[in-house]
Design a protein around this nucleic acid. Structure first.
Lengths: 199, 199
DNA sequence: GTCTATAATGCGATAGAC
DNA sequence: GTCTATCGCATTATAGAC
């Protein structure tokens, strides 16, 4: 410390810089709007007002940028899955997963849109073990073996359905508390009520 | 007829050829798996066992390929929206839209995954009027003005949620009739039941 | 209807100066 | 931490032979 460098960063310390937060912010907005494959490093660099090479100082590959953006939410989701698994009984586990998952996705908003909605993530699942694990465990908890066909369909509807309100402009103005409540209500109706008899 | 040409096609008749169906099939599978932006014309050509130039004989741009794949479903959805609008009362309209929409998406399966789930479509909405119109009218019917905040969130959950079961491998084996029933049940629980009191 | 060949551009990624 | 400059490659798209 005390030398001429304003931001001392070794190769391993890059992830602690403040520039990383701005990069995540810009990349995330572009990923959610155009998709990961539809977002070039040039677009990210332009949004930050820098060049591609500057972006590459923070991350060595595009995959690492995507993982860097997703990692905080992936860790939150790992906690939610663990807490839900600690409950006894499938209904209690489902209830815990609904409220925990909604809490995470509303806090992060656009991150879940990328995580659950972007086709590029499917390719990343084969490369990153933690990502693959949390997605698989989350799905298994409410749609895995032990649940019947109808419940599995409802569960997949819920997991994918969260993306709808999150990235729709009509819901951008909804306060976090209200959005959370509506999403939890929707999840309970989908997953914790019996199907009505056909009319 | 009777001359040496095996497939007589003028510039305007291209869309009636049998090769178009194979192209749609191959492109659709790739779009649903890798996303539109993640699918190159080379990948489509490889899947067909031909070269890129052969693909360009059918369509002049990638956008036209996407629109060509989506158009049959867009037309089906236009019919569903019209039929739903003919009903009187918001509940009847919602019910008609649920059953009609589910019918269309189960018949087409992967097309709706691209239409409702791919970020690239957002860019196409600004270029194709029929596409923009049907998406807007469909959303307005169950999530437009006249519905409260909770209902709008549920509606967007439903529209986005359909993608989940449709592209998940665990649901590929479900028979069309069963999948239709489960999706309609889920839609009714989301959109036609009151929210349960918080426990 | 499909091919080879090519134009023009953009992509992810690297090297090295400051 | 950011820059300029560049490499090698893939991309969309076109021209013209068969």
């Amino acid at each position: 410390m005390g030398d001429g460098r304003t931001t001392a960063t070794t190769h391993e310390e890059r992830h602690t810089g403040a520039g990383r937060a701005r990069l995540h912010e810009a990349a995330l907005r572009l990923f959610a709007e155009h998709g990961v494959s539809g977002t070039s490093l040039q677009m990210i660099a332009d949004a930050l007002g820098v060049t591609k090479a500057a972006v590459y100082w923070h991350y060595r590959t595009k995959d690492e940028i995507v993982l860097g953006v997703l990692t905080p939410v992936v860790e939150d989701l790992t906690g939610v899955v663990g807490a839900a698994r600690a409950r006894r009984g499938p209904r209690a586990r489902t209830e815990a997963l609904i409220t925990g998952l909604v809490d995470v996705v509303v806090r992060s908003r656009m991150v879940y849109v990328v995580l659950a909605g972007d086709p590029f993530i499917g390719e990343l699942l084969g490369k990153d073990e933690r990502l693959r694990a949390v997605v698989e465990e989350m799905t298994d908890l409410i749609a895995g073996p032990g649940h019947d066909e109808a419940q599995r369909v409802s569960a997949l509807m819920f997991l994918a359905g969260l993306v709808g309100p999150l990235n729709h402009p009509a819901c951008a103005a909804i306060a976090d508390d209200d959005l959370r409540r509506h999403l939890v209500d929707g999840g309970r109706r989908l997953l914790l009520t019996r199907a009505a008899a056909k009319g």
